[in-house]
Design a protein around this nucleic acid. Structure first.
Lengths: 361, 361
DNA sequence: GTGAAAGCGCTAACAC
DNA sequence: GTGTTAGCGCTTTCAC
């Protein structure tokens, strides 16, 4: 490695006694150049430790191979964790596919759209990953209208196709092709279904649900999995639900209400935060009414906290999500829809069983 | 916004009836162009919604205004949290300074160094942020030798200037100018000092320390703060230390040992994970020996878990760290050392007092 | 102060 | 197959 100026295409061409264009061809369409010359060129490239200047290439081809991702405003909660893990995975998957991830921030949706324009116009970013869509999101609409490649982690919940029981029987991973934008999401319903089934299998019959207030797509989806599973077991009739905003303290309160009024033997929680609160409430409760059999608890997200307190939880396979997201993006950027057959992908989570649901009954 | 091709310098020049160069000057050295023409040009820029193509500019200037950061291998622990928060803050601070953050991954230090070369040669990244340095780090050496701008979050611990008591009295924020590489770090010693002092002020006299095994710079630094503070109070003689690798389970074990043998009334923990374990151990212990006054606990990092379980903890001001890091990087990239006077910056953490240290004695 | 010319490193289009 | 020419959009000389 010389520490003077870096070699360029011409340097390599001179070295290999060919024209610049031939070197370029060796790099971009190796098959069209005669093996003998190709060898010679590759040799020169290696000798000189030449690496193409992607900036120059980008200026020419209008392709940056860079993906943009907005850092969501530091969600100091436990659930922000999932996004961070996703970012890790995304970076790796993107790199494997020859793409880079570039970060940016924005105050709100409008500011974010302005950043899209900015990034496209100035740095020529190829596509975007949105990890925090919400109902009626103006960003996805803008991106779609302007033909900007993008993919979301999370379904668009506007059309309200989920969240009720009517699809409970069709949980086979692939829901009908709607021509919305490309997305990847985790099947929350399947997650709570697995948790509930696990508790049923362990002999529980009175399984309550601690959820978020109705109206959040994600929360309703998770609720549906629990409800459908109990319904299938003929236990939906006396099923107990407590709804509360997310948070540990809120979880304590909600669980306390359930424990005081009902003789639930297990709690399926919509998040690890709430589950954590439920565990605390149970300790309280156990102290006052000792001798009562312990109550099983499951959470959702499998955050580090869950591991820390040995909480059974539904793990989100963010690695899979990231891989599919990158595939979906490449299909658009490279104009090859065939490399990502499904424009909408639902990834199956899996249950991690730990102490809180193994307690003796 | 026309959805044909974007306007370029020439478009604007034509529109404003000046040469391309004049437009460029308005953008880069506005002061040298006559106000009248400047106005006209700015008008044209606004009319056309022109934005300079940074790729073309970069090809010319050899400056990308992009910072590289390696995503550390998904540390699924509680403490990985701090890095994630740092990344959030860094993205914001960088953007405010007209810089972008680009992510990459690497298996190990050597692979990372190869990526440095790659990123420099191909995309012309301007500088790097290292958020996870370790003793004898080959990466910082390589970067320094190759004159690549960089800054680390974390001191180089090789030279062992900290970790003992000898500097305890000089805790005034600025330690001597050594000509190592630029870094920003959090003053762990000051953090445990604050925690210990807080406990002393609350009347505690037997304050034990739950730390990591000796040899980790960060851990030794935090240990030193606790030890020095007790020494200042004349209580270092019978001070109890338990050392253990990080982790909740490990914290349980270590705290159990302390509680069994010693009559400590407070525990200063080197991390939130260990503190979490200590809390669990205390609950155990309280159950068996009821009536005993509760033991105060402090953690370190102020992770979401700490908030969740109402644990007093030392908060790392990652926002400040990010801001200083960006300043240090800009000083190098732009060749203006004056904008970041201190090449090494120690940021003061602060104690967040919560229930676990407010317990009645 | 303003403009014309050259060139950053690369690839697309066409010659040979 | 290979080489030549042109030009992506910008900034940096250097005349004027």
């Amino acid at each position: 490695m010389v520490d003077g100026s870096r070699p360029t295409l011409s340097t390599v061409a001179q070295h290999a006694r060919v024209s610049r264009q031939t070197v370029s061809n060796v790099l971009n369409s190796p098959e069209i150049v005669r093996p003998a010359t190709r060898e010679r060129v590759l040799r020169a490239i290696a000798d000189l430790d030449y690496r193409p200047n992607v900036v120059a290439r980008q200026l020419r081809t209008r392709r940056s191979s860079v993906l943009g991702l907005r850092m969501p405003p530091a969600s100091d909660g436990i659930s922000g964790q999932v996004l961070d893990r996703f970012l890790h995975a995304l970076t790796g998957e993107a790199q494997r596919a020859g793409l880079r991830v570039m970060l940016f921030t924005a105050e709100d949706d409008d500011a974010e759209i302005r950043e899209y324009q900015n990034l496209r116009a100035t740095t020529g970013i190829d596509g975007f990953v949105l990890a925090d869509t919400h109902a009626g999101d103006p960003r996805t609409r803008w991106l779609a209208e302007h033909d900007v490649p993008f993919v979301t982690f999370g379904r668009p919940w506007d059309d309200d196709r989920a969240g009720t029981d009517d699809l409970a029987g069709t949980d086979d991973g692939k829901r009908g092709e709607v021509d919305g934008h490309p997305w990847v999401d985790i099947d929350g319903r399947a997650g709570t279904r697995a948790a509930t089934q696990h508790l049923l299998d362990a002999g529980h019959r009175r399984i309550a649900f601690l959820g978020w207030p109705e109206g959040s797509g994600v929360g309703d989806d998770r609720f549906a999995g629990w409800h459908a599973t109990l319904a299938d077991a003929g236990l939906a009739g006396d099923a107990v639900v407590q709804r509360t905003p997310d948070g540990v303290a809120q979880g304590v309160a909600a669980a306390t209400r359930v424990l005081a009024r009902d003789d639930a033997t297990a709690l399926v929680c919509v998040s690890d935060s709430i589950a954590l609160g439920a565990l605390a409430a149970m300790r309280e409760h156990a102290a006052s009414r000792s001798g009562r059999p312990s109550v099983a608890v499951t959470g959702f997200d499998d955050t580090p906290v869950a591991r820390a307190v040995d909480l059974t939880s539904v793990a989100q396979p963010v690695g899979d999500v990231a891989a599919r997201a990158v595939g979906l993006l490449r299909a658009q950027i490279e104009g090859r829809p065939e490399i990502a057959p499904d424009r909408q992908v639902l990834v199956e989570p899996h249950l991690v069983v730990r102490a809180t649901s193994r307690a003796v009954r």
